Every structure is written in structure tokens, then in C-alpha cells.
Amino acid sequence: MRRVGVVCITLYMILALLGGSAAAQQGETAITSATTSKATISLGTATPGGGFPLYGDAFAKAMNAGDPSLEIVPRNTKGSNENIPLLEQGELDLGLVAGEPAYQAFMGIDRPPTRLKILTAIFSSPGLFVVRADGPYKTIRDLVGQTVVFGAKGSGLPIMSRYILDGLGLKQDTDFKAIYLDRAGDGPAMVQDGRAAALWGAGIGWPGFVAMANSAGGARFIAPSADEIAMVRAKHSFLKPLTVPANSYPGQREPIASLGSWSFVLVRETLPDDVAYRLARTLHGAETTLCQTLAQACETTAANTVAAAPSVDLIHPGVLKYFKEIGAAK
């Protein structure tokens, strides 16, 4: 087993390190400490150019400023589908995970149920297609048979689109010429230069949508209609109606109704309760700073975490203790 330091945050953890206790052995992870008491905590994000690295940098900056004895270090990964096993193996302390892969992991869909826990909900992710404004495509059905970029390999975006399209009776890999990227940031250029008809993405302030909206030709967003939203939810009720507010992107003058899920910061199972408590306290003390740093991070609140979690039992016990103290949970 590789040897990794234990964070010297509390007396409990110091004693665990000195005593070589079973609890310390079980808690060996990517958390490290040097000769000082500063705790270095790894945070898995995703490939460059996507929303998770953008959020991860803002999250780390706000957390490190809120508690100078913390050093949260973002790390690019392949995204949600890599972050989950890395957390389970103790290779990450924290990881950003989209709602759909988190749901599958918690429910044990196509895999054993995970024992990972929620630190916080980070933002809602309404799913949308984006096309060039001068293109002919106006509905999801218009895109059938066309080349569509569904996101980076290993990210949660292709999983969300697969559920939504399935609810409409469409198959992502047969009804569309599906492209999956090595780097999330490569998608907008493929639509702009005509290699693809559309790009799938999700969220408010998502970099791919920003790039498309700021391009010379502008962008048109395509979301499920009201009837299509009802069809999807009849089959996949865990997907929630969500709205992209007007003016979230340049040229987008009206709100866009869609559906999607909440993304989370998940933590490894062995993260001690007092560490999780401290992270929650620091995070929610820095909510205003995080919101000022990144607009979509304004949704990172204790109240949203309690509301977005599939069950409060999935919130880390240390986090839940803090939430109860501040009245955010019963």
C-alpha cells in the first residue's frame, strides 16, 4: 500500500497518525501534509475547457482563502466517470461528479452501489444543444442523422443526453453521428467550422456555450419542448425541470426551459467526520466569495445541497452535523 500522509487538522488525526491505528490505516488517501499543519486536499475536476475545471479553480480559490491552513489542489481528470473510481480507490479526496453518474453510482445501476458521500451540491445543469445561429436546426428531431458532439469521454454530459434522448425514443449512438471528445474545449470549433451540426452541454456559464454564443455567427440553443420534457420525465423521473435564465449567454434574450440534474462534490468514504465538518463550515462561510468568483457557483449553498441530494443519508455525516447546527437540515 502506498504511504500517504495524514492531515494534521485535529487532535484525533494526530493521534491516529502517531498510534498507527486501524482508523489511520483505513484513512490513507491523497490528503497529504508537510512539516506544517497545512492540509493539502486533492480535487478531481475534468478535461480542460469544460465547466468542472472552471468551477474547481473557483472552489479551490474560495476555500483556500476561507481557511489558509487548507490547500485544495484541483487536478484535471477525464471527468465524472473517472472521478468516481478514483475516489473509491482513495486516489482523490474530493471529486466533481455530474448528477447522472452520481445517481447511477448511488443507486447501483450497472455497478455495485457506491459508498461515496456528498460534500455539497455545486450547480444545476439544464441540458441543451447549441448550433450555429445561421443553421437550419431548430428542434431535437432536426438533429437526427446529424453529427453531434456529445461531450468529453468520461464526463457526465453524454450520460445526461443519453437519458434525455432515450426518453424521447431516440438512441444516441445510432440516431446521431455521435462524437466524444478527448478535451471538452474542442467542441465549439467543430460546430463553428461545420464538422458537427450541434454541441451538447449543460449548465449556466458553461464554457462551450459561452464560446458558441461569443462566436461571430452567434448561436441558437435547442432544448426539449414542454411535451418532450413530460415524455422524458415519465420514463426518467430523476431528471428535474430546470431553466436557463434569460441573458445567461450573449444573444439569449428569453429563458430556456429544459431538464437536467444537480452536480456534486463527492468525497471518499474514509474522509473523517471532523475533516468533512471543517470543509463544510469553510465552504458555506465562503458562499458569497465563491458566488462573486463564478456566477454559476452562486447555487453552491447548504440549502441547495439538502434539496438536491437524492437522500440526506447520502450527505457525509460530518457535513450533515454542520447543516443541523446552522438549521439547514433536521
Rank of each mutant, 00 (worst) to 15 (best):
R233S: 01
P245N: 01
E269F: 13
M231Q: 15
P241C: 06
F264S: 00
A257I: 07
A230F: 03
E269V: 02
L239T: 02
V232W: 03
G260Q: 01
L266N: 04
G251D: 05
S258E: 11
S261Y: 07
P241Q: 02
A257T: 14
R268G: 11
R253P: 00
E269S: 10
A234V: 02
A234S: 13
S258D: 13
E269G: 06
S248D: 05
T243V: 15
T270S: 11
S261I: 08
V232C: 02
M231A: 15
G260H: 01
E269I: 05
P245Q: 05
T243R: 10
S248E: 10
L259R: 00
K235P: 00
F264H: 06
A230M: 09
P241K: 05
V265K: 00
A246E: 11
P250W: 14
V232R: 00
H236I: 00
S261N: 14
P255K: 12
S261W: 06
P250T: 12
H236A: 11
A234P: 00
S237A: 09
R233D: 00
T270H: 12
I256K: 05
P245I: 12
R253M: 12
P245S: 08
G251S: 06
L271M: 13
R233F: 08
W262V: 03
P250V: 13
V267C: 06
V265N: 02
M231K: 15
V232A: 04
P255M: 12
V267T: 09
A234T: 01
I256F: 06
V244D: 09
V244C: 14
S258M: 08
L271F: 04
V232T: 07
Q252I: 13
S261F: 09
V267H: 00
I256M: 13
P245E: 07
K240H: 09
S237R: 15
R268Q: 04
Y249K: 10
S261A: 12
S248Q: 06
S258Q: 09
P241R: 05
F238H: 13
V232F: 03
L271P: 03
L259I: 04
S237K: 14
I256V: 15
E254A: 14
R268A: 04
R268Y: 10
A246W: 15
A234G: 10
V244Y: 05
Q252Y: 12
T270R: 14
I256T: 10
E269K: 09
A234M: 07
S261T: 14
A246D: 10
P245G: 03
R253K: 15
F264Y: 15
R233A: 03
L271I: 11
K240M: 05
N247S: 07
T270W: 10
P250M: 13
A230T: 11
N247F: 07
G260D: 02
A257P: 01
V232Q: 04
S263D: 10
K240D: 01
K235S: 07
V244N: 08
W262M: 03
R253I: 12
Q252R: 11
